[in-house]
């Protein structure tokens, strides 16, 4: 897993990093059970405020993607410790709402969105194949 943040990007650093971890887990670059760098190490590596990393790890733990074992570190959660299906669907729905609003504002139709979503999913599967395979 390659860690990087760019303060010049418009996206806040905590969002960049949170997105990277989520993406890493989704694509398999961070496998279930994998140990994440300690807050101290990651803060040093990226030269960012350690509080930012604490906040991200806590948030991802709340979402069930990570879990912290006292004295051992932070790990990628196994599928069984994840949130309930309803909870997961609720989280994704929120993100989709944002994309739908954006699409409508930009003059795209529901059909356009379906086509785009299918294309993005196919591309994602390719990437995941590379990481897992």
């Amino acid at each position: 897993m390659h860690w990087a943040v760019d303060p010049q990007a418009g996206e806040p650093i905590y969002r960049q990093l949170m997105g990277q971890i989520k993406r890493g887990i989704a694509t398999g670059a961070l496998a279930a059970g994998a140990k994440l760098p300690s807050v101290r190490d990651l803060a040093k590596l990226l030269v960012i405020n350690p509080n930012t990393i604490v906040k991200i790890y806590t948030e991802l733990e709340r979402e069930g993607l990570l879990l912290t074992r006292r004295g051992l570190g932070t790990f990628v959660a196994g599928a069984s410790t994840r949130l309930s299906r309803a909870e997961r669907e609720r989280l994704v729905s929120q993100r989709l709402d944002g994309a739908i609003v954006e699409a409508v504002n930009l003059g795209l139709t529901a059909a356009d969105l379906h086509r785009l979503l299918a294309a993005r999913c196919a591309r994602f599967d390719c990437e995941r194949e590379k990481n897992v395979g």
């Binding site: 303060p7 803060a43 960012i48 405020n49």
Partner: peptide, 29 residues
């Protein structure tokens, strides 16, 4: 790097001014 090391110790606080906003964005909360 030194600022990050310092802040990791319990109860430490840093106030700094700077014109290099990329640096500030990295480490300020």
């Amino acid at each position: 790097d030194s600022m990050i090391t310092l802040i990791q110790q319990e109860g430490r606080t840093i106030l700094f001014s700077s014109h290099i906003l990329g640096d500030v964005e990295r480490i300020a909360d």
